[in-house]
């Protein structure tokens, strides 16, 4: 008996050693993995900072020559070396805001259809279609804008006939591109609302629409906002399609039918030919402004979402609340 016990004890000891060895190698592996992951994450930040530093360095000449006036200057004239970025900022923001205003209701409705209201049989195909549209290369949208949309808008210019390429054309094309993105993200957000909350609403006598309005949408608010911001971000940065249909004219016009210009478009158009150092430097400064605006905008959007989620999390703390474990009142 005692011999047996010894053998068992030995076996146990061996098992322990093995377990320890496994545990050690596991710990090492976890450390290495964490190190690599940290490095990868850090490299993202380094990349952003490097990009920022590079653009800042390259745009120094422009900053020194024009100062803050660069942002307010309305004239962009490479031939006479006069550079002001306002037309691009104006064009970028106006076209993106317009695109969002057009795409938001449509994207929201598509998301609701796919996630909630549509017949079950059509939801899958429509959802797949939306995702496909979100993945279509932007140049294709641009071609459609040039070949179909612009001719439709031709002759609508405020100052006589135009080519149809205009701020409006750019906004419409952008809206078309942004809509699938918004719809796809919003659908995922709506589908993430817990089923038991929908059941609660249904059992309380809510119709599908009432449950959607009073339960699902309020619960999904932060995510819906994030989807909107994602769409806006995509519109701000979009280059190709916009360049093809906006008309590329560095003027600030009150008419949506007049051509305009965006920051991304001017970079794509002029960077390759900018032989004059001041011209190149001014373009770098436009890029810098675009980067800063985008980063600030994203930080702001994340901040809003995070604040909302934190508020929610604060309200959702687990653990016994007062009164629950105490005596019955």
């Amino acid at each position: 008996m005692s011999r047996n016990a010894n053998v068992n004890a030995n076996a146990n000891a061996n098992a322990n050693v093995n377990a320890n060895a496994n545990a050690t190698s596991g710990v090492v592996f976890a450390r290495v993995l964490r190190g690599i992951a940290q490095l990868a994450s850090a490299s993202l930040l380094v990349l952003l900072l490097a990009l920022f530093a590079y653009l800042a360095k390259q745009s120094r000449m422009s900053v020194e020559v024009f100062g803050l006036g660069f942002l307010a200057g309305t004239e962009w004239d490479p031939l006479h070396a006069r550079f002001g970025a306002l037309p691009f900022l104006f064009g970028t923001i106006l076209s993106s805001v317009l695109a969002l205003a057009i795409a938001l209701p449509g994207g929201f409705l598509v998301a609701i259809y796919v996630a909630e209201l549509g017949p079950r049989r059509t939801r899958g195909p429509v959802g797949a279609l939306v995702e496909m549209l979100a993945a279509v290369p932007s140049v294709v949208y641009g071609m459609w804008g040039v070949l179909v949309l612009a001719p439709l808008l031709r002759g609508t210019g405020a100052r006589g006939p135009t080519q149809g390429v205009s701020m409006l054309a750019a906004s419409l094309v952008l809206a078309l591109m942004v809509l699938p993105t918004i719809a796809a993200v919003m659908r995922d957000v709506l589908l993430a609302v817990p089923q038991n909350l929908r059941e609660a609403g249904t059992a309380l006598g809510g119709t599908r629409w009432e449950v959607l309005r009073h339960v699902v949408i309020p619960h999904a608010r932060a995510g819906l906002f994030a989807a909107t911001m994602l769409g806006f971000g995509r519109a701000v940065g979009e280059t190709m399609a916009v360049t093809m249909v906006i008309g590329n004219s560095a003027e600030i016009s009150a008419s949506l039918f007049a051509p305009g210009y965006t920051a991304a478009s001017v970079l794509a158009n002029e960077m390759p030919q900018a032989s004059d150092p001041l011209h190149a430097s001014a373009l770098y400064e436009v890029a810098l402004v675009l980067l800063v605006v985008t980063v600030l905008f994203n930080l702001g959007a994340h901040g809003v979402v995070r604040r909302y989620l934190r508020r929610k999390a604060a309200g959702l703390s687990t653990g016994p609340a007062e009164g629950e474990l105490g005596p019955s009142p």
Partner: peptide, 26 residues
């Protein structure tokens, strides 16, 4: 009316609004 296995109050709605939610839904 129905009460479910897993408590499912509307988590971010206040206690008051939770009580009133059935009426609002209707």
């Amino acid at each position: 009316g129905m009460v479910f296995q897993k408590p499912n109050p509307f988590p971010e709605m206040s206690v008051r609004d939770n009580v009133l939610s059935g009426l609002r839904l209707n």
